[in-house]
Design a protein around this nucleic acid. Sequence first.
DNA 1: TATCTGTTATATTTGTATTATAACAGATGC
DNA 2: GCATCTGTTATAATACAAATATAACAGATA
Lengths: 132, 132
Amino acid sequence: MIIQLDMQSDVPIYTQLMNQIIEGIARGDLKLGEALPSVRGLASDIGVNLHTVNKAYNLLKQEGFIQIHRQKGVVIQPDAMPLVTPEYELKQHNQLRPIIAEAICRGMTKEQLLQVTEQIHKEIMHNEKGNA
Amino acid sequence: MIIQLDMQSDVPIYTQLMNQIIEGIARGDLKLGEALPSVRGLASDIGVNLHTVNKAYNLLKQEGFIQIHRQKGVVIQPDAMPLVTPEYELKQHNQLRPIIAEAICRGMTKEQLLQVTEQIHKEIMHNEKGNA
DNA sequence: TATCTGTTATATTTGTATTATAACAGATGC
DNA sequence: GCATCTGTTATAATACAAATATAACAGATA
């Protein structure tokens, strides 16, 4: 999977890394159980420090998206993805709320908002690899 | 309008302030042209430094949500809210994308996602003041 | 004139993000 | 057994953002 970083973004590199790996899983580019590059390998590939990659990996592990085996390496969680917990629902709510509030201020209708959501959902799901 | 801050949150205070004012506008608690407290007054009320409030106000002004008159004070934009510009659409897209990707990973269906969006939209719009 | 606005200027403290090295401990391959 | 690969831990340095603390300035108003 190709990682694209924006070094000018105000989003931290380790967050961008997390987001791209999560989207990679969502779109099926990264299969359950699939191996990820080593911290040193990925850091070298994308030109950042190994600790930056390590931080992203450890946060992903903490949230249950990947497994880290001390002398084997890093793999996408092989069994099943983390589920929709009450804590996650709360986090998601707090993330969405200010975005939706601003959309309302700017005059977007509920229908337009739902359409944008549906559009992004489609963008993520519609990969070319035939995710069947 | 009552401002509720979470000092333990990792969301910066000035961002929480911006979000609450924007949501206040969205739900109709803050009317167009309505006066906001002075930087010193609000800072004192919520127990933060005047520069923290000033930063929030200036960012809100920069995005077109409020007007700042040098010797009069701060008011909600009296004419009209900022509209849906291409830049805003891009920003919104970049904000929503990782949230939706994680939801997909955790097994939420598109319908569940739309339902959550609709629910939050309702929460914001359904105030008790009869926003007619 | 005193008092209220926002504004500007410094300085300090605190925490995060990122990089740079280095070393450690366990597993693997030759 | 030794070199090499894992992730892990430790330490330090740099850079920046968030927040606070004071202080002063300039224009408007009562």
